[in-house]
Structure formats: structure tokens, C-alpha cells
Amino acid sequence: MSSDIHALSGAYALDALDADERAEFERHLVGCDACRTEVDSLREAAAELGHLIEATPPAGLRERVLADAAVVRPLPPAIAAVDRRRRRRPLTALIAAAAAVLLVGGGVAWHPWDRSSEPTTVTAADRVLHAPDTQRTGTVTLPHGGSVTVYRSVSLDKAAVVVKDLPDLPDGEVYQMWLQDSRGAMAPAGIVGKGVATARMVLDGPASAAVGAGMTVEPAGGSSQPTSAPVALLSFTDA
């Protein structure tokens, strides 16, 4: 693992991290706006490059790309508020994005990070977190520790929650998520697994019309309506 986790944004955008690195970087990504911006910009650049005219790669290109990748040190994103529309991507970001182009020759597409024995899995929660129209609520710290952040994509009609370091509950109690409508009514949206301290999950139910999300402590198995005051209440309208 890199000593500077910010430097992994390019490799993460290209799905070039191993499982342990990806998991650690995703935990970092939840709380780092700069890295989320960097990852989004790299993926946008890679998508644009994917529309370039297809051509047969010259002989030896794959070997040269892999050799260069072994010695080029990626730069971390600048940890500062930036205007993405005006920000100029650093040269290393363009190099990383260029590596995402499919080199098509003889009908075979090749990715420089291809690891056929280790397919990359994009979860449903990943799709919500990284959708172009995703809104991110503020992060709420629970009274006894741990935090909750909710993401919503109107285009996907889905919301996802990211929980970190949730304290254990007594036997017979669970954390339950809710989606709140414009009248303030709460609809059950899923239960955080017992003993799960840090995780991400897609909330049940349509989210595009919701104005917020909440978390309560409920009896095991969950409830049809909240039976206690929310330990976290997050607003989409302020996101």
C-alpha cells in the first residue's frame, strides 16, 4: 500500500488496485472530497478517450506501456477546493486516463491492467456513489461513536448508505435505515447487518422523491415504522 493513499486515485479509477488496496482506498474515499473529484475526473477522461478512432496498436506498445507504468510515480490530488470545470488535469492524470483506452487490433480489446483471473466487481452501491448526479449528504456522527453518510442518485432512483465504526448494539437490537418523504413519513429502507461496523449498502425503495434518510435502533428483524427517535437524520435537500 502506498504511504500516500491520495496517490492511489488514478489506479483506483482504472480498477488497477488489488482487493485489499481497493477496500482501504474506498474507506478513505468516503471522507476525501479531493480524491472523489480526482477519481470522477479520471473516469470522465477515460470515457472520452474511449470514443477515439479505433486503430491497430503498433508492435511492442503493450510492453512499452507496462514498462513506463513501472517507473512513473502518480501524483496525489491537490487537497484543496477546486472548480472541476476549470481545473487542468496534471500530466500524470492524462497518462492514467490514456491507459484506459481500448487498443483494438484483430478484433481483440486489451486493457493494460487486465487480470483475467481477478475480475473487477462493481457493486450496486458503487454505482450509486459514483453516478454523475450523485448527491452526498453531510456525515452524521452517532451519539456513541461511528458515522453515517448517505448518497442519492435521482437518475438511478436509488440511495446508498456508508457506515463507519458503528458501535455494537445489545442482543435483540439492530440499526435500521429509512427514507423520508416530503410529509416527514418514514419508509423502511433496510437493516444494517448485525455486527457490521463499517459497510456500504443500497437502501430499499425508490429514492428520487425522498427528501432525506434516517437511522434508528429497532428490535431484531426491523420495524414497519420507527419505534425510537432517529440516531441519524440526513437531508437530501441540503446536499
Rank of each mutant, 00 (worst) to 15 (best):
R87H: 12
E118H: 13
R88W: 01
L94R: 05
A19Q: 12
H130N: 10
A125G: 09
D114L: 15
G146E: 10
L166P: 07
S9P: 00
A131R: 00
D181Q: 05
D126Y: 14
W113C: 12
Q180H: 01
H144N: 14
T37Q: 15
A124K: 11
E26R: 14
Q180G: 00
A207S: 06
D18P: 05
R87G: 03
G138W: 01
K164G: 00
R127T: 11
V192H: 04
L52F: 07
P77K: 03
V150K: 06
M1K: 08
P230M: 07
L91Y: 11
P230S: 02
S116I: 09
E48K: 12
A159W: 09
G205Y: 07
A97G: 08
T37E: 13
S116H: 11
L17G: 15
A209R: 15
V108G: 09
V39K: 07
A210R: 05
C35E: 04
Q225D: 11
P119N: 08
E24R: 15
G172F: 01
Y151P: 07
L61R: 10
P170D: 06
D83H: 03
R85I: 12
R73T: 07
T56G: 00
A199M: 14
D181M: 09
R62Y: 00
P219G: 08
A199Q: 14
G195S: 10
A46K: 09
G172V: 05
T123W: 14
P143T: 04
V163I: 08
W178G: 02
V140W: 01
E38I: 01
D33S: 11
S224I: 02
Q176T: 04
L17W: 06
V108Y: 00
E38K: 09
L233Y: 12
C32F: 03
V217A: 00
V161F: 09
G107N: 09
T37M: 12
A45G: 08
E63C: 01
L234C: 08
E38R: 15
T121V: 15
P74D: 06
A210V: 00
A159T: 13
D238S: 15
T137P: 14
R183D: 11
G214T: 06
G50E: 10
T227L: 10
S117H: 14
D133H: 13
D68Q: 02
S147K: 12
L66N: 10
Q176L: 02
L49T: 03
K164H: 08
D40I: 05
V150L: 12
Y12H: 14
M215W: 05
L75D: 02
H111L: 13
P77Q: 04
E173R: 15
C32L: 04
S2T: 03
